[in-house]
Each structure stands twice: as C-alpha cells, then as structure tokens.
C-alpha cells in the first residue's frame, strides 16, 4: 500500500539573481512499512525532497499526498497537525532544544499536540511512553541530561526517540549518520532498522552508499529527477 505519493514535484531557489532548479518533476512513491533510501550527490536536492515530503517546505509545482491526503491543498493548521502526528523528523544536526533535558525533548511533540488541560491528564502516560522509547534507544540512564552533556550518537538517538514518540506514519531521516563516526553511525542505523522491523515506514536521505545499502529500496536523485 502506498503511504506517500510525490508527483511532478518542482522546486527552485533564488540564489541572488539566479534561479536554481533543484527538483524538476520528481515522481516517487513510498510504500507503507518500507525503508527507502534516497541517494544522490551533494546538492542534488535530496534534503529538499525530504523537507517537502514532511511539509517543512513548499513545492513550486506538483503534489505530495500522504495516505491519500494532498499535503499542500490542506490548510496550514491541518499541515501543522500532520507534521505533529503523522511525520517524524531526524536531522543530520539533531536539532534538540538546548534548554530542555532528554526526557523533555522527547516529550515535546506530545506537548505540542496537546492542550494545557489535556496535558494535565496525559502527562503521566506521556512520560512513561517517552521513558519507554528512550529505553528502546538505550538512553534510559540519560533522561535528565541536557543535550550538551551527550555524545553525537546519543543526541541522534534522542532525536530518533523524539521523532517516534507520537507514533508517526512515517519517519524522515536526513543524513542521520552524516555527523557521526562509523561506529556511532552503525548504531543509529541498527536503531532505525529495529524500528523498521516493527513496521515503521522510513525514508532516509544519504549520500553514503553503505547506509543506503541497508534500506529495502533505493532511489537515486540525479539532476533534480529520480533516476529510473
């Protein structure tokens, strides 16, 4: 079953007076439960594609549908809700909130999606769930630590835990091992693999062929198009 469908996607950026086309009619399907790797040379538009897939960026043309719903035909409010409930992001540079500890960072998507009064009743269950996920990624002893007290690999695992805490329909990982050494990178990939085995749909953007080889399926982005 197709979870996400991208068709005729175009995206360009203005670089001074020059308009640079990054995506030129991309067509892609992501099936439920698969682990898809998007590869390509640096600057070929992999991250842009991923950002548009997760509604972090807007396309110039084309459509993106998630479980049949057109992301960019929906209202801003609806898109924010989809980003909160159906999409989880793992970034190359972790992007954790420095003022919050590990547990709070993981809880943040739950807090964003819950009203103040709702949080009062859901807090206990949410904390238990976050602790459980942190245990899953091997950080059960780091709950009260701040991001700056963690190693790169640990930070990325916190980012993964944060991305999956709301049980999203698909997980988008942008060069998740790009900022880590080989050993840590391997650990992160094992972690993602474990999630995929439990049925989590994952799209990984990477330029590392070894990482891409671990995915169920690979697509290559060349000159703004998916190479067939």
């Amino acid at each position: 079953m197709v979870l996400a469908r991208v068709s005729k996607l175009h995206k360009s950026y203005a670089l001074g007076r020059t308009k640079v086309s990054v995506l030129r009619g991309v067509n892609l399907e992501v099936r439920e439960g698969e682990m898809l790797a998007v590869t390509g040379a640096s600057g070929c538009g992999k991250s842009t594609l991923l950002h548009i897939l997760g509604a972090l960026d807007k396309p110039d043309q084309g459509t993106v549908s998630l479980a049949g719903e057109d992301l960019f035909a929906a209202s801003t409010w609806r898109r924010d809700t989809i980003r909160n409930r159906d999409v989880g992001f793992v970034f190359q540079f972790y992007h954790l909130l420095p003022e919050f500890n590990v547990l709070e960072n993981v809880l943040m998507p739950r807090m964003v999606g819950t009203s103040t009064w709702g949080w009062m009743s859901a807090r206990r269950e949410a904390k238990a769930k976050a602790a459980e996920i942190l245990e899953l990624v091997g950080l059960q002893d780091r709950l009260k630590h701040r991001p700056n007290e963690l190693s790169g690999g640990e930070r990325q695992r916190v980012a993964i835990a944060r991305a999956i805490v709301n049980e999203p329909r698909f997980l988008l990982a942008d060069e998740p091992t790009g900022n880590l050494d080989a050993k840590m990178g391997k650990g992160i990939m094992e972690c993602l693999h474990g999630l995929n085995e439990k049925g989590q749909t994952i799209v990984i953007v990477t330029h590392d062929q070894q990482i891409a080889a671990l995915a169920d399926r690979q697509v290559r982005l060349v000159d703004g198009k998916i190479e067939s």
Binding site: G54, L56, T76, W77, D80, T81, I82, R83, N84, R85, F89, H95, L96, L97, P98, M108, P109, V112, G113, R162
Partner: peptide, 15 residues
C-alpha cells in the same frame, strides 16, 4: 533555530 524545531514538531504559527 528553536522556533524552527518547534514548528517542525507541528507547532502552529499562532502557537
């Protein structure tokens, strides 16, 4: 950057 992170987690502009 934090605002971007919070928005990527689904926070609305009004929020």
């Amino acid at each position: 950057r934090d605002i971007g992170i919070i928005k990527s987690l689904g926070a609305t502009s009004a929020g």
